[in-house]
């Protein structure tokens, strides 16, 4: 259960539909695939998104180290803590909070570089996923280049846990039903999503 907002990193680049944040490798708060995050854009506006990729680029030093014969642990630790290239976390925008009101519309303009990225609390996850009728699924389903099935499975698993905490076990069933409705006419996608959800297993 996470109850306090945790700062993850700062924004590197952004667009209306998604953004990328950089963070340190050693950060204990490194988010996982499918995590719901938010970025305050301005005073009364925040963007919400889901982590769909965590990416680490190499630099010259890493390449050298990777081929050396023996690597003392302190060298490894030093390289990780002080590397030039941050870990890149890619996020798909799925909604916003404007003047305190959550919705699954996109924010009017994207966050800008070095804005701070937070991981949402369980309460925020519950609030966001029960606003409206799961409309944010449309952003995910439209992003064909993403591993949609895996992303949904990861997100639903985390959200399911959050709702379970507050005693709402039906949320997962409703979300699954909504996905089936949305994907009824797209057999391959629906089956891959449902296969992924089935792999979650019962709680």
């Amino acid at each position: 259960m996470n109850t306090t907002p945790i700062e993850i990193g700062r924004l590197l680049r952004s667009s209306l539909t998604g953004f990328v944040a950089g963070c340190r490798v050693d950060q204990p708060s490194l988010p996982v695939f499918g995590t719901l995050v938010r970025v305050p854009i301005e005073d009364q506006l925040e963007a919400f998104g889901l982590v769909y990729d965590i990416h680490m680029d190499d630099d010259g030093l890493v390449r050298q180290l990777a081929t050396s014969h023996s690597l003392p642990p302190e060298v490894i630790a030093d390289n990780r803590n002080n590397r030039n290239m941050p870990v890149e976390i890619s996020i798909i925008t799925v909604g916003r909070r404007k003047t305190g009101i959550l919705s699954h519309l996109l924010p009017g303009h994207p966050p800008v570089s070095l804005d701070v990225l937070y991981r949402c609390t369980s309460q925020e996850v519950r609030d966001f996923t029960t606003t409206g009728r799961l409309g944010y699924f449309r952003h995910i389903l439209r992003a064909e280049e993403l591993p949609v099935g895996e992303l949904l499975a990861a997100h639903l698993e985390q959200a399911r846990a959050a709702h379970r905490e507050s005693g709402d076990p039906a949320w997962f069933k409703n979300a699954t039903r909504e996905l089936i409705t949305l994907l009824r006419d797209d057999y391959p996608t629906l089956m891959s999503v449902l296969n992924a959800l089935s792999d979650l297993g019962p709680e």
Binding site: R177, I180, T181, M191, L194, N195, S198, P202
Partner: peptide, 18 residues
């Protein structure tokens, strides 16, 4: 038949909808 491939609860939901 989706029953063998999917979790039974999900398979039920699927059949109910499709």
């Amino acid at each position: 038949p989706s029953g063998e491939r999917l979790q039974s609860a999900i398979s039920d939901l699927l059949q109910g909808q499709t």
